[in-house]
Design a protein around this nucleic acid. Structure first.
Length: 633
RNA sequence: GACUUGGUAGCUCAGCUGGAUAGAGCAUCAGCCUUCUAAGCUGAGGGUCAUUGGUUCGAAUCCAAUCCAGGUCACCA
C-alpha cells in the first residue's frame, strides 16, 4: 500500500475515534505538501469544519496529536498553516522502504490475478504503407499492453488486418493496368510502398475521370447518367440554381460535394473496383490470386517496419476471414429481428431509440461493410480466448463507429459487450496543419524512423563518448536512442488529445525526452559498475536523510501509484511524466552530492541503494513505454 | 445543423474526483566541467487559465451561455 493510502487510512481511523462518527476518504483531501512548507503530506481541513463545527486549527491539532501518539514510527511531527495540516513522515520509513526494495526489479508490478484482456491495435490497411498516425497507434497499443501486464492482467495483443474491401481492389486494379508485372524484387521498392503507389495511381485516375463528369454536369449535360442517379442530379441542379440566387455559400459547397460524390461513384474505374469486390467475395480464382500476391508484398513490408519499431502481436486476425462470421451473425440477427431488411435487400439496424441513426450492416448486393466484420470479430475474440476485457486502440475519428459496434454487440446479447473499451486517441497533426495523403504531406513511418536513428547517430558521434563500442553495439545504441526519442515524444501526451508533431522538437534529445531518461539511467549504471555489490548490501546504520536524498525516495515510492493511474486512465503519458520527473529529481541530487565519495560509508551505501533503485525503476518504467534503456551512452 | 472533443507562458504540453503564490520542457538571457558521463545542474524573465455569468469559505478545475478550433454524422475503411 502506498504511503498516501496508509496516511488516509490512519486519518479515517483517527477522525472516527476522535469524533465518534464514521468518516470516509471523501470527507477530506490528502496531498503532497508544497515544497515551501515543512512536512511531507497535507490534510486539507476545510471540508471537515462544517460537519465538526470546530475551527480548522482545533481539528488539525487534535488530529495531528492523535496521529503522532498512535503511529510514532510513521509520523514525527506536524504543523498547521491556514487550515492545512502538514504531516512529517519519519526518515526511518523512507530508508526502510529503500532498503527493502532497492534491488527488486519488479517493484510496483502486480502478480497475475487471472484477468484476461485483449488489446487490439495497429490494424493496418493493406493498401498503403504505415505513417506517423500508425506509429502513435502502435506505440500506444504496445504500451497499454505492457501497463496492463504490470497491473496483473494476462494480455493478448491482437491486430486486425484490413485486407479486404473496395480500397484493396483499388490498388489491384491500378497494378493490373499500369504495373506491367512490376514486383518489389524487380523494382527494389519495399512491398507496402509499391502497393501504396498503385493505390495513389488509382485515386489520381478516379479524380481525373470524375472531374470530366463534374465539368459536364456543370454544363447541365447529364447524358452519362440514368435512373435514380439522374433524378437525383436533376433535383440537385435545380436546388443549386435557386441557391445561387440567394448566395448561401455553405449550402452551395455542400451540394457541390454531393455532386462530386455522385460523379466519383459513376466513374468507370469505381465500377471496375466494385465488380472486383464482388468477384473477390465469389472467390474468382484470378482475383484471389492477384490479391494473395499483392497482400504478400505488403506483409513483407509491414513485417520489416514492425521489426524496426519493435511491435508484435500474439494473434493476427484477417478481415478476409472474419467477414464471413460477420455475415453469418447478421443473418442470425435478422432471424432474431435485431436487424431488418429493406426492399432493395440491404440489411440495417435501427438505433434511433438509442439516439443514433439507422446503420447499414450489409449492402444490397450482399457484400459486407466495415462493421460487418467487426461484429464477427468481437464475438470470435470472446469465444477463442474467453477474455474479460477488450481494448480497441483506434483513432477518435471512429468514435461513432465504435459506439455503434458496442451497441450492436449488446443488442445481440454478446457476452461481455459492456467490457469493450475504445481507447480513442487523437490525430497527429503537423506544424503546417493536418496530414493529407492527397497533398503528399503524410509523414511516412519508415522514413521517420530512419531519420530518428540517423539523428541519434550524428548526435552521439558529436559527443564522442562511445569510443570503445563495437560496430554492433553502436548500431544497437543508435536504434535504442532514436526509437526511444520517437516513442517518448508520441507517448508523452494524453492519448485522447490531438497532438502536433514538430520535426525539430521530436529530434531534440534534451529535457522532457526519452534520451534524457536513458542518459540518467546510463549514468547511474556507470557508477554502479565501479562499485562492488558488497558495498551496498549491508543494513543501513542511520536513517539520516538529506533533503535531496529524501526527494528521490519519495519519487521512487510513487511508482506503483503511477502504474495504477496509467492503468485506470489507459494513459501511458502518466508513466512518461513519472519517469521524467524521477530522472530529473535524481539528476538534481546527483549534481549536488557525490555517491562514490560520500561523507561516510553509511551515506555511500544509502546513495548506492538510491541509485540502484532509481535505475531499476527508470528501466522498468521505460519498458512500460516500449523503450529500452542503454547501459552506456 | 446534430452529436462529440478541446481552448492554460512565444511554441509543445501537465494540472481538471474544487484547496496554499497555476507547473514542466523547448526557445531567450545569466551562471556551473582539475571530483561518480555537461544528452546534465542552478538561476532569471515570460500567464486576464478563450469570454461572461453562476455555485462555494475557496474555481484553471463544477454548472450555464457565448466565441473559436478539431472530429463524426457514407451501400469508404
Amino acid at each position: 500500500m502506498s504511503i498516501a493510502n496508509t496516511i488516509q487510512k490512519n486519518v479515517i481511523v483517527a477522525l472516527s475515534v476522535l469524533h465518534n462518527q464514521l468518516f470516509t476518504e471523501k470527507n477530506f483531501q490528502i496531498n503532497q505538501t508544497k515544497p515551501e512548507f515543512e512536512g511531507d503530506y497535507t490534510i486539507v481541513l476545510f471540508s471537515l469544519v462544517k460537519s465538526l463545527k470546530q475551527s480548522p486549527d482545533a481539528i488539525g491539532n487534535q488530529l495531528g496529536q492523535y496521529l503522532l501518539n498512535t503511529s510514532p514510527e510513521l509520523f514525527v511531527g506536524f504543523n498547521i498553516i491556514k487550515g492545512f495540516l502538514n504531516l512529517s513522515i519519519s526518515n526511518a520509513f523512507w530508508t526502510t522502504l529503500l532498503q527493502k526494495n532497492y534491488s527488486n526489479i519488479h517493484f510496483g508490478k502486480k502478480e497475475n490475478y487471472g484477468k484476461k484482456v485483449m488489446v487490439e491495435y495497429s490494424s493496418p490497411n493493406t493498401n498503403k504503407p504505415l505513417h506517423l498516425g500508425h506509429l502513435r497507434n502502435n506505440f500506444l497499443g504496445w504500451s497499454i499492453a505492457e501497463i496492463y501486464k504490470a497491473s496483473g492482467y494476462e494480455v493478448i495483443k491482437s491486430c486486425i488486418v484490413n485486407d479486404r474491401g473496395i480500397h484493396i481492389c483499388k490498388s489491384m486494379i491500378a497494378w493490373q493496368k499500369y504495373a506491367d508485372g512490376a514486383t518489389p524484387q524487380s523494382t527494389g521498392i519495399k512491398g507496402d510502398h509499391l502497393v501504396g503507389d498503385y493505390y495513389v495511381r488509382f485515386e489520381n485516375d478516379l479524380k481525373a475521370e470524375s472531374q470530366i463528369l463534374i465539368n459536364k454536369i456543370k454544363l447541365a449535360d447529364l447524358s452519362d447518367f440514368n435512373g435514380v442517379v439522374l433524378e437525383k442530379l436533376d433535383k440537385l441542379l435545380i436546388t443549386l440554381t435557386k441557391l445561387d440566387e440567394i448566395k448561401d455559400e455553405e449550402k452551395i459547397t455542400k451540394l457541390h460535394n454531393e455532386i462530386k460524390e455522385i460523379a466519383r461513384n459513376s466513374t468507370q474505374v469505381i465500377a471496375e473496383a466494385k465488380q472486383m469486390l464482388l468477384d473477390w467475395e465469389e472467390d474468382k480464382p484470378e482475383v484471389i490470386e492477384l490479391w494473395k500476391k499483392m497482400n504478400g508484398w505488403v506483409y513483407e513490408g509491414f513485417d520489416a517496419t514492425y521489426k524496426l519499431i519493435g511491435s508484435d502481436f500474439d494473434k493476427i486476425y484477417y478481415e478476409s476471414k472474419t467477414y464471413l462470421l460477420g455475415k453469418y451473425i447478421v443473418q442470425q440477427g435478422l432471424d432474431k429481428s435485431v436487424f431488418f431488411k429493406k426492399e432493395d435487400g440491404s440489411i440495417w439496424i435501427d438505433l434511433t431509440a438509442d439516439g443514433l441513426d439507422e446503420k447499414l450492416v450489409q449492402r444490397k448486393d450482399g457484400t459486407s461493410v466495415y462493421i460487418t466484420q467487426d461484429i464477427g470479430l468481437a464475438l470470435q475474440k470472446y469465444e477463442e480466448y474467453k477474455i474479460d476485457n477488450s481494448i480497441y486502440v483506434i483513432g477518435n475519428e471512429q468514435n461513432y463507429h465504435m459506439k455503434v459496434l458496442q451497441l450492436i454487440c449488446k443488442k445481440l446479447d454478446m457476452p461481455n459487450a459492456d467490457n469493450i473499451f475504445h481507447l480513442s486517441y487523437g490525430m497527429v497533426e503537423l506544424t503546417t496543419g493536418k496530414m493529407k495523403s492527397r497533398e503528399g504531406t503524410v509523414v511516412d513511418a519508415d522514413d521517420l524512423v530512419d531519420e530518428m536513428i540517423a539523428t541519434s547517430q550524428k548526435h552521439t558521434e558529436e559527443l564522442g563518448k562511445v569510443k570503445n563500442f563495437t560496430a554492433e553495439e553502436l548500431k544497437d545504441l543508435y536504434n535504442t536512442i532514436g526509437l526511444g526519442a520517437m516513442k517518448f515524444y508520441l507517448l508523452r501526451v494524453d492519448p485522447k488529445k490531438t497532438m502536433v508533431f514538430n520535426p525539430e522538437e521530436s529530434i531534440d534529445f534534451h529535457g522532457f525526452t526519452g534520451p534524457f531518461v536513458q542518459y540518467t539511467h546510463a549514468r547511474i549504471k556507470s557508477i554502479l559498475r565501479k562499485e562492488s555489490l558488497a558495498d551496498y548490501q549491508q543494513p543501513l546504520a542511520s536513517s539520516d536523510l538529506l533533503k535531496m536524498e529524501k526527494e528521490v525516495i519519495v519519487m521512487l515510492e510513487q511508482y506503483p501509484d503511477a502504474i495504477k493511474q496509467a492503468t485506470i486512465e489507459y494513459n501511458p503519458s502518466v508513466i512518461a511524466m513519472y519517469v521524467f520527473n524521477l530522472a530529473k529529481t535524481f539528476n538534481s541530487f546527483y549534481a549536488e552530492h557525490s555517491i562514490a565519495n560520500a561523507e561516510t560509508t553509511d551515506k555511500k551505501q544509502l546513495r548506492l541503494q538510491l541509485a540502484t533503485m532509481t535505475a531499476n525503476i527508470l528501466k522498468s518504467g521505460m519498458e512500460l513505454l516500449g523503450i529500452r534503456v542503454p547501459e552506456r551512452m
